[in-house]
Structures are given as structure tokens and as C-alpha cells.
Design a protein around this nucleic acid. Structure first.
Lengths: 193, 193
DNA sequence: ACGGGCATGTAATTAGTTACATGATTAA
DNA sequence: TTAATCATGTAACTAATTACATGCCCGT
């Protein structure tokens, strides 16, 4: 349960309105913690009630009106407390890997297209990360930016892994399909429906 | 929403009881799709009602009594249908990366220990995967095992990435802490509480 | 005055987690 | 005969997703 802490971090980096936060979650924050605008508005309400953040005085409290938030001392303390503890990474849930395993049982129909599709997506994401690194962290010297660059490099490393793995998987699946077309044998479910 | 398909895949590979499934989700299946026993029992009930699976006739329907399930033709069709579509991987939510970003704002107290802890965990997981590959996929020749080995290799690749990234992150954080101790300067929050 | 995009929010549903309850089997 | 473990299940809660509702502001 780290969404409140993601929001506190984002607001400490820069006070923002709900929609502005949503945009940042779609971009930089989303590289390690994703959230929709509904989650964000709900959580902003809770954080405000808990006394961790407050609306900037300039913002009127009316629907449809922009409302900017900043972190209060209690909010910073809470984030510091959280950052002092242990964060367990949640176990993996990857639908593509599940599909591969399913394909081993019910056949590989359409699998190569799906691998190609993911390969395109991950190549695009990798390019985006690398562009950001060049643009924003060309010469990161202060401790804050060096930590943020580490986070970005995790994203780059992960995307690099996926691109390489997908290329390898695609090669292997293509080979399997070709072999099955040449001489179908064995009790398998066939290469393509 | 892929838990039912994870269960169908697992049951096609080998008919099992709820607890046996739970054990497999803690092990091989859990490498790409995790689930608790409560989720599994609930989902088994739904799948049975939907006519996708059935209890083996040998199993009595009483509480505390083992009850084994197998996949019915309709269940296999459903899995085939699902495997024919697109599977979007969910956006990342990684608490450790979030914590790094938070540490850039509220200070790095305890960060090195946390990185070391994760490093140990990922090294252990990597060793486990590699052992499995040696043991179960030494000479994977049939298409089914080659696909399953691809899945395992994704796990190996991911863990390898984390181990490397964590080592790098630890080196950098250690360096930052040392520099801060030598000559603390700038408006930062300090290296350790 | 209205259409489009900005901005905040509600409601309903589904998925996932945590805690606990119950019965069956087995071995000391 | 009792304790441990196997095995299935209920209940309550929290988080996340999906769909929709409302009001503001700006350009035409």
C-alpha cells in the first residue's frame, strides 16, 4: 500500500493539482508506480483529511475548479517514516508469460504476432527512457538527481531485458512453427489453430 | 483478469486439488502469476459453476476432504480463446523504486541496508531459477518444454537484471553517503537520519 | 449560446488481501 | 486422546478498475 507515499513524494517534488498529478503519474512517476485519476483524487481526499497535505490557499474549494496541494510537515514525517521501513516487492503477474505457458498446452496460434506487438511496445518505451536520460540527466551531479537517475536506469534495464528476451522468444517460436510445418509429429496441439 | 486462465493452464498440465494448486502457485506457476489459496478456492468454485472444470468422481464433496479438479472441453476452449487475444502487461508498481525516489526527497537513511536486503533476495531467487533450469530443462527438445523454458528464462533474465542493478545502486548510494560524511554541503536532507 | 477540453468527483464492480473457522487424517 | 498438519472454506476489508456525472473556462 504505497500510493499515498507515491503522492507525497510527487507533491514534495512539486505541489500540484489532481489532474497535474495524474499527468505526472502517466509520465515520470508512472515508471515505477502507476495510478489512475480516480485513485489519485480519492487518495488526495484521504491525505488531506489525515492532515498530511493541504490545498493551497489560492485554490477555491468548488467543483470543476483547480485545486493545488502541498505537503505539510506531518506528511513529510509520514513519508520519512515509511522510507525508513522495508518495502517488499510484490510477486510477478505477467499475462504474456502466462500466455506462453498456456500456449505450451493449447497451441501457439497467433503467439508470434503477440510477441512482435510486445517487442514494438517495449522498444518504444526504451527509446523514451533513453531520451529522458539524455535530456534530463546528462550531467546529474547532485545526490537527488543521481538517485532519480538510478530509478530511471532501472526502467531502462528492465525494458532492455524485455526487448532482448522478446527477440529471443520470437526467434525460438518462429523456429518451432517452421519445424512443425516441415514435419508435424508428436502428440502436440499443432503450431497454429 | 487472468487468474482463471492461470488455473486452467495449471489444471491442464496436471489435474490437482486446491491445496496442490496453491503449492504450484507458490512454486512454478508463481514465477509469472501469483495467487493465494483463498483466491484459488474462490476461482475454482466459479470455474466449476461455469462448466469449465469438474471435480474428479473419486473425490467426495465434503469439507476437509481432498477434491481434485480436471479441465472440461469447454474449459480448454475458453483457454484457447483467451490465448488467441492480446495480453497487455500491467504498468509497473515497484515499492523499492518508489522508495528511492522518496529518498531523494526525505533522505537516504537506511537505504543501503534495504538495497542489500533486496540484493540477497534476488540472488537467492536467481539461484533457484538456475537450479530448476539445470534440473528440469537440461535438454528441452519438445515444443512444450521449449516454451516453458522460455518462460523460466524470462524469470532468470529479470532476476539477473535486478541483481546487477542493485549492485550498481548500492555502489552509488555508498559513494553518496561517503561523500556526504566527508564534506556535507548543499541544502539536501543529509545522508542518514 | 454552445461545443470542446479542463478539472474534479461519485458509483458500482471486480480483484486481491488478511484473518479466521471448520473438518479430516495421521502419528505420538 | 490429543496435537499437528492437511485441506477446504467464509467473512470482512482494502485496493483497483470501469463507467459515468458535474461544473468551469475559453474560443467561436
Amino acid at each position: 500500500m504505497s500510493l499515498p507515499h507515491a503522492i507525497l513524494t510527487a507533491l514534495l517534488e512539486k505541489p500540484s493539482s489532481g489532474l497535474a498529478l495524474t499527468r505526472r503519474f502517466d509520465r515520470s512517476i508512472g515508471y515505477f508506480w502507476s495510478a489512475t485519476h480516480q485513485q489519485i483524487y480519492r487518495e488526495l481526499g484521504k491525505l488531506e483529511q489525515a492532515g498530511f497535505i493541504r490545498a493551497l490557499p489560492s485554490a477555491q474549494p468548488s467543483r470543476g475548479q483547480k485545486k493545488e496541494f502541498e505537503v505539510l510537515p506531518a506528511g513529510r514525517r509520514e513519508l520519512t517514516r515509511w522510507a525508513g521501513g522495508e518495502q517488499d516487492s510484490k510477486p510477478i503477474r505477467d499475462a504474456l508469460l502466462l500466455r506462453l505457458r498456456a500456449s505450451a498446452v493449447v497451441g501457439r496460434a497467433g503467439l508470434d504476432e503477440e510477441l512482435r506487438r510486445h517487442l514494438t511496445l517495449h522498444r518504444r518505451q526504451l527509446a523514451e527512457y533513453e531520451e529522458i536520460e539524455d535530456r534530463d540527466f546528462g550531467a546529474a551531479t547532485d545526490p537527488e538527481d543521481r538517485l532519480r537517475r538510478l530509478v530511471l536506469r532501472a526502467g531502462i534495464g528492465l525494458e532492455t531485458f524485455w526487448v532482448e528476451w522478446l527477440a529471443q522468444a520470437l526467434a525460438e517460436v518462429t523456429e518451432l512453427d517452421a519445424a512443425a510445418e516441415d514435419g508435424p509429429e508428436g502428440p502436440g496441439d499443432g503450431p497454429a489453430g
